[in-house]
Design a protein around this nucleic acid. Sequence first.
DNA 1: ATCTTTTTCGGAAACGTTTGCGGTGTCGTT
DNA 2: AACGACACCGCAAACGTTTCCGAAAAAGAT
Lengths: 342, 342
Amino acid sequence: MAQFTIKDLARKLGVSPSTVSRALHDHPDISEDTKRRVVAAAEKYHYQPNLIAQSLQKKSSTTIGVIVPEIRHHFFSTVISGIEEVAYEAGYIIMVCQSNETLAREIVNTQALVANRVAGLLVAISTETTRYDHLKSVLKRGVPLVQFDRVVEELETSKVVIDDYSAAYEAVMHLVRSGYRRIGHLAGQEGIALNRHRFEGYRAALADSGLAFEEKFLVPGGYREEDGRRGAEVYLAMDELPDAILAINDPVAVGAFSRFREAGVRIPEDVALVGFSDTPAAALIEPALTTVYQPAFEMGRTAATLLLEQFVTEGRFTPRTVTLDTELLVRGSSRPKGAAWA
Amino acid sequence: MAQFTIKDLARKLGVSPSTVSRALHDHPDISEDTKRRVVAAAEKYHYQPNLIAQSLQKKSSTTIGVIVPEIRHHFFSTVISGIEEVAYEAGYIIMVCQSNETLAREIVNTQALVANRVAGLLVAISTETTRYDHLKSVLKRGVPLVQFDRVVEELETSKVVIDDYSAAYEAVMHLVRSGYRRIGHLAGQEGIALNRHRFEGYRAALADSGLAFEEKFLVPGGYREEDGRRGAEVYLAMDELPDAILAINDPVAVGAFSRFREAGVRIPEDVALVGFSDTPAAALIEPALTTVYQPAFEMGRTAATLLLEQFVTEGRFTPRTVTLDTELLVRGSSRPKGAAWA
DNA sequence: ATCTTTTTCGGAAACGTTTGCGGTGTCGTT
DNA sequence: AACGACACCGCAAACGTTTCCGAAAAAGAT
């Protein structure tokens, strides 16, 4: 019932608690013989070290905190999977919180994780997050922090991102090469760096192709399927549809996709579609969605790795930002204009 | 840099640490006046209680552990989302581990969580898990445990599940009513209770419909898309295909779906398909997949709620198992035999 | 004015570890 | 024979809280 502690073990063996502790940690001051006895006894009595006590004394825990907008989203759960993977290998365990895209909850979450004395923090900010006091305070406390995906650039932390600008640029270039000319963009909120970068890549590609940027074809929204549907709605109300659309992510693309289909708009004959890979569903719709593949799992792995590195670099440490490669997966939804059905 | 503790606060205020602690917890022994002073000072110096120390002294933490086969799977990440939701509301934070479907890692995970002195444990076992010593040991230590989805029935814990038997039964009945007669089953491993129940529901529905159970149409496999593809392969090698298939879950159904399509087999004209809802992709394929909807988010919520309830019921407590309702979402992939295209 | 009650607080131990420091005992060297 | 070196281990403090047990001061009762 009550906990079996190191003291109990010591009593059973007739040695001191310090000896037990040292034996368990393979300290050189302890003879091989007693080490064996201690380990054997620990085994026998199912001794389980109390990590809480250990953390208190060491002033640092063996858990790392993770904050994401929503756990259930495919992209983030994949990232978390990656994080857990390397955390596990390194003997850490992860505490996961979701902000539900609200700043208030994100703040509560960071406080809770700090209160739990996590060794470090991995965060992707919410869409509402335009003030960063909570993150700055984490930094000031000296808690290692690395941002991923949704990062705030002016914060001096390690970051892992994709090259949103180039990815969007390439996606649009692909559309242009495929014969599309009136290319719209289902964008995200302007505040988020990621969204801005994708927009800028989109715009630059238009410019570099000698195409005009049409304000009305830029329709901002959120990250979810319903936002895509709403966006499609906006396009449908226009005199003339764009002939291609770059969506801020897959759910939005899929939402637009189904709304368009309902309206009898053919993909890609009437309008081509390109997304950013948040979901495996993209490959299954008909025609399959052309999409920018984002290495979510790998993003989680590297973010965690960066954090672990920061743990060991005592004292002076310089933030690194690693940019992961994306890949444009060309599929049916952006078939060259006028091409026959596959 | 160094931590600002309750002692520091006490020193600043010229009172004892005990007084500060009591003031912060609104203890009646403390005058309103000093309470105000303490709270104000705590605010001023950004005092953050050390939950680690608190846990050590209280001998119980405010974190709950979660173990799932794989975080990245849509079903489980949705469950986790639900868990986090109610945990958050109750002031708990969750530690999440994945077993990667291996028993070894599941064992390590439970030990790590116990070592971290979680207040309770929420687990869905791996496919490999046929011995339960690690879970029994958790129980013996008196750590509250509730199982969800993949449960081991002989363990005396609260459980939250769906009625797999009935769900499979209804799904097959639906197929029969739609005119299908040679109904196959892409099953999971036999060891898992959940798989067995679905199989039994399937078999009972056949029997009650006066249809013969054909051994060869039962093809066991795993939970992933590739298992579905492999299963389709098996069917394709037969002289005669089944005219409908109940898949153990959506990924498997989707896998079979795409393999069949590659082989020129039409869905549902040549073979109808029904899945168990693990993924949103089911609604997007063409034709859309008929599937048994499982309330994953709700499952997470109730599992966490059950655990929280168990926290307060000191002493005598009787395990409850709650069965969540499913719903058969009838879509194109099981269109009545011979019916025209929508 | 003394005694009892109440209010308000402090001392100290405890939760389970780790670790600096010091203390034995043994052995080899001179 | 004496001394240093070394191997091995125990004491006690510390990590930041909470809480039992009193104790002092204030208030009320007689």
